[in-house]
Design a protein around this nucleic acid. Structure first.
Length: 226
DNA sequence: GCGACAG
DNA sequence: ATCTTGTCGC
């Protein structure tokens, strides 16, 4: 796939302006019912080392099909600022996605979708940029609060609400006895549809398999640098 | 002023 | 994101 160029803001203030504009393009409607091939995105990074981004092409019936890796030197990276993560990692993901043998039907991203202070987590940003359906799965909360206590049983989910009460996504227990995940739609998918999709992904441990495999690969690639 | 704060 | 040993539990 040939992604459009991804502009790099000169500073956080500029990123904020861009972010607010792009947030207006997010569309939270659509189902991933018929989707079969997705790309799982995860990154790994160590100070002073290049950022490693992995795009793993995954077929929901066949399993993992291909792994593409991209490296971006520290000097080329936008600084990490909570709420502006996409400006740092998205360029690397776009490069990895471009190296896949075929374009995915949807993206599964390690990070937030619309459960973000300005409604544009990295999953949403990438979805809008590539005009692809996307879902965000984060390991920690950035924005919002659980509507109620999360039950212990595998598969349990409670809504994540914005301060004004608007639903943003879900706190989701992927397995019994593990810490929850934060699932939110990125782009071109509904709130409930995003959760429904994540629930049907094979999940042996805490993370859905596509993301877990991408994470393992990113860790390997980083370690292989030294 | 005091926390909170994806990766 | 990474830095890190032991330890609890299936």
């Amino acid at each position: 796939m040939r992604p459009p160029p991804f502009p790099k803001p000169a500073h956080p203030e500029e990123a904020l302006v861009l972010q607010r504009a792009l947030a207006g393009k997010v569309r939270l409607v659509g189902s991933l019912e018929g989707v079969r091939r997705i790309a799982a995105l995860d990154a790994s990074h160590k100070q002073g080392r290049p950022l490693v981004a992995v795009a793993l092409l995954y077929d929901l019936e066949k399993g993992p099909l291909h792994v593409a890796t991209a490296f971006l030197p520290e000097e080329a990276l936008f600084p990490y600022v909570p709420g502006l993560l996409s400006f740092r990692e998205a360029p690397a993901y776009l490069e990895a996605l471009a190296a896949l043998p075929e374009a995915p039907e949807a993206l599964l991203v390690d990070g937030q979708g619309v459960a973000h202070p300005r409604g544009l987590g990295i999953a949403s940003h990438l979805g809008v940029h590539l005009d692809l359906p996307s879902v965000g799965v984060a390991k920690r909360l950035l924005y919002g609060r659980p509507e109620a206590p999360l039950p212990e049983e595998k598969g349990a989910a409670v809504r994540l609400l914005a301060p004004d009460g608007r639903p943003l996504g879900y706190v989701y227990r992927s397995r019994t006895g593990v810490k929850p995940l934060y699932v939110s739609p990125g782009h071109r998918v509904g709130l409930e549809e995003a959760l429904r999709f994540v629930r049907r992904l094979p999940t042996r441990f805490r993370l859905p398999e596509p993301l877990r495999l991408a994470h393992l690969e990113a860790g390997r690639a980083l370690k292989a640098l030294d």
